[in-house]
Every structure is written in C-alpha cells, then in structure tokens.
Amino acid sequence: MRHLWWKVLCGLLLAYITVFSLTVPLGPGVIGVDQAALTSGENTRLIQTYNAHLDAADLQVFLGVDDSSYLCTEILEIVEHDLVKVSFTLPENAPNKSFNVLMNNATDGTMFFPNAFRYAEGSSSSENTAWDICTVSVENQFNTAFSIPFQPIIYESIRNLMFHVPMWFTMFFLMGIGLVASIRYLAKGDVSMDLKALASVQVGLVFCVLGLITGSVWARFTWGAWWVNDPQLNGALVTFLIYVAYIILRNSIEDDQKRARIAAVFNIFAFVILFVLLMVLPRFSESLHPGKGGNPAFNKYDLDNTLRMVFYPAVIAWILLGYWIYQLRLRLHRIEKKYYYHENV
C-alpha cells in the first residue's frame, strides 16, 4: 500500500469536482429576444433571461447605441422571474445597426447580450440621429452570488470544462511519459522503458478517444455539428491517428528488441511532428474553440474564482486517474513479460 496518498487524493478530488461542477448554480444571463428585427418607431419586445431574479423595483434595461451611450427602455411587464416585456422608441432617421442589450438589477448584477436587436430599414449614415440617450448612467454591477459564469449558447454545458477539457491534459501528460520513456530506452536500452512507453500510449489513447467523443457531443449542441473544421479537433484526430499507427507498428514487428527500438524511434519522431502541428495549426485557421480566434473567451472567466476553484483540481484529478490506470497497465505488462518470457523488468 505504498503511495496510497495520491490515489486517495485522486478519489477525493474527483468526488469534489463532480459534486461542485454539477451542483453550483449557473449565473444569470440573457438567452435571447422574441424578435430581433426592429422597426422604426416604437417596438415592444420580450427578453428571456436564464436564472435571473427580475423584479420591477430595481430592474433597468438598456440598448447599447455605442460604447458609452445607451437607449432607454420602458419596462412594461415582468412576465415571469426570468421574462420581461420592454418597449422602446427608435428615432425616425436611425441608421442601420445592431444593438446590445444590457440589464441591471441588484441581485443578478449586469447581464449583457451582444447584438440582440438589429435595425435594417434605415439609412446607412449615422449622422443627424436624435438618439433618446439615457441620462441615467449605466454602471456595471457584479453578481455577488456564488455561481458558475453564464456564457451565451453554452449555458449549463460550461460544466463540461471540468470533464471534457482535462481529457486532453491527461492525454498529453501520458504521451509525455511515453516520449521520455522512449528517449530513455534509446539512451539505455532498458526494456522496462519500452513497456512504460507502450502502457502510456495505450492509456493515453483511451483518454484521446474519450476526449474526441465528448468533444463531438458538446460540439453538436453548441455549434450544431458533430464535427467541425477546427484546429483543436484536427489536432486531436491527428494525435489519435499517429498513436494508433504506433500501436500498429509495434504489432508488425516480431523481434522484441527490434520492436522496442523502432517503436521508440517512431514515438520520438511522431511526438515532435505532433508538437509542430499543435503549434502551427491554431495560427492557420479560425477556431470555434472558446478563447481562440475572437470567440467569447473563457479568458475573462478563466480567472473567475469560482471556475478556477474547480477547473485546476479537475485537471489534477483526471491526470492522477490517468496515471493510476497507466500504472495498472504497466504492472500487467510486467507480469506478462515475467510469466511468458521469464524476463524480469
């Protein structure tokens, strides 16, 4: 029962991140509006929010005209705690543009929804528009409730951050072990290093497959397709193919020594090329992944304390689990080697 502590830690962390990421409520946010197109004159629209606690007493709704000026709206009715009916008037000669929606209230803080409305019946020039600019200054309020940050389109599935993303961290950790083992094998010719490389690639591939499948499911319900042309996804697929090729290569060589040597050469070569790929790919194409290529980033929220409290432990927990499974695989390889080939490694 040596080294029990980190296995206990792994279990505790896994329990912690699962409970935390499935029970902490999602912060409030705006989901959408009933009709995006605006007409000149008065408009009455419904705005749907999520997890918000709207109250007639302190709710303010604004339309962003530009960075600093806002168009006032009149709150007609709070239909439900998360649904509000507002009305506002566009000036006669308003230009064609889209409007962001901002909502303020004391319990939920500021909720922001980009490009909620668009106006397409006006002129293209923005001069001489008599905006009915709000005199009330809009101050950003912060939601003080303990919650996971709200993201448009992603909604609750932001919790996948604690399950899908660490799969890749774990895979890279394991493939890294494989690389080091391969280099040490070529340097020393130690058979146990070859077994380490094999076991780490095998377990790494499991996490790679899990990452691919979970990523595909998540993509389907945020981007609308099972597979999209995205550098992260392409990188993941190439990683998978390369390591499957590694396993095929191993199976195609009979002689033990030769197999170990050649597999190690291929592993090093493949890892370096993979590294190049993962460096080069993101520069080449727009990514749909959050935080890349002008997407609504987690960046703002990565530093969000609530997420940080659970994302880092999640990465550690999954890496520990991966390492644990890798050790089991490795021990099995060792016993097989000892029993079938009478080699102590």
Binding site: N234, V238, A245, L249, K258
Partner: peptide
Amino acid sequence: QTDSGIGMTAVLGLPITIP
C-alpha cells in the same frame, strides 16, 4: 524494418504528413 515491409510507410506516414 517491419515484418510487413514497405506497406507500412502509408500507415505510419499519412497522419504525420498532415502538418
């Protein structure tokens, strides 16, 4: 060096040529 010979080039090489 493999037992299946040069046919392996495609299996090993194709994923690697992608970058």
